[in-house]
């Protein structure tokens, strides 16, 4: 399970501050009549690295998609970076430009080159001059180790490379929070490591991260909190050591035995 994480983690920058980055209060969401998220309360501090785990259909993806309003919640309160998410489109766009998101299926724009994928939002949302946006893009593409692919199209890259571009694309907006929605689930085993390495580097720089993933090795190595969800509610949360070695709820124990015990 933790073979993918092979190197020492540099924890010098990984500090959690008292400042609140995300505040979710008594939040509920329904799909029609189906109660998909039930009474979610969650406070994320700046610099925290949270891994959200749980069986499929437990609402973990829906939860992080509520944080940038890709999904609308029906009751309760979500405050991101001091901005409350309501139907006010201005607030939504403000939050979205501060929160980066990485998807399971990358969702790169296939008609644009890698570089154009990375510069599009800075140019059109942040109004950054083109040349400066390209410099920033090359900086982050170098960081995810694919600067030489900048002028190719997404279809010409491997899955792992595409996911690293997707991370770079989000970083080009200089987000204060990063959301990862199962970033390695669609990848071949050989490519998972390169994406996880990129995510670890990000964590080492002190990025606030919420990550839905089944990579328990990543959770153990990087997370400072693991949240376990089932049936639309938070069942258990703890630091990774206690979460894996001393789970409290029966449901968590069953889940861990299922995914760790093969």
């Amino acid at each position: 399970m933790s073979e993918a994480i092979t190197r020492e983690i540099d924890r010098s920058q990984m500090q959690v501050s008292d400042e609140v980055a995300i505040e979710i209060n008594a939040m509920n969401k329904w799909y029609g009549t189906f109660h998909v998220l039930r009474d979610i309360n969650l406070t994320v501090h700046r610099g925290e690295r949270i891994v959200i785990a749980g069986p499929s259909g437990s609402g973990k993806s829906t939860l992080i998609r509520c944080i940038n309003r890709l999904e609308e919640h029906q009751s309760g309160k979500i405050v991101v970076d001091g901005v409350e998410l309501t139907s006010d489109i201005k607030n939504i766009d403000k939050v979205r430009s501060e929160v980066g998101m990485v998807f399971q299926h990358f969702n790169l724009f296939p008609h644009l080159t890698i570089l154009e994928n990375c510069t599009l939002a800075p140019i059109w949302v942040r109004k950054v001059p083109k040349r400066q946006a390209e410099e920033t893009a090359m900086h982050y593409l170098t960081k995810v180790k694919i600067p030489d692919q900048a002028h190719k199209y997404p279809g010409q890259l491997s899955g792992g490379q595409q996911q690293r571009v997707a991370i770079a694309r989000s970083l080009c907006m200089k987000p204060r929070i990063m959301l990862f929605d199962e970033p390695t689930s669609a990848l071949d085993p050989e490519m998972i490591k390169e994406v996880l390495d990129t995510m670890i580097e990000l964590a080492e720089e002190g990025m606030t991260m919420l990550c839905v993933t089944h990579e328990m090795g990543f959770a153990q190595a990087v997370a400072n909190r693991v949240i376990f969800m089932d049936q639309g509610q938070i069942v258990e949360q703890n630091n990774p050591y206690d979460f894996f070695n001393n789970p409290q709820s029966e449901r968590t124990k069953l889940f861990l035995s299922q995914i760790l015990g093969h």
Binding site: N68, L70, K94, S97, M101, L120, A121, W124, V125
Partner: peptide
């Protein structure tokens, strides 16, 4: 979703 998430 990707376009939305980037704030466009």
């Amino acid at each position: 979703e990707a376009a939305d998430a980037l704030g466009l």
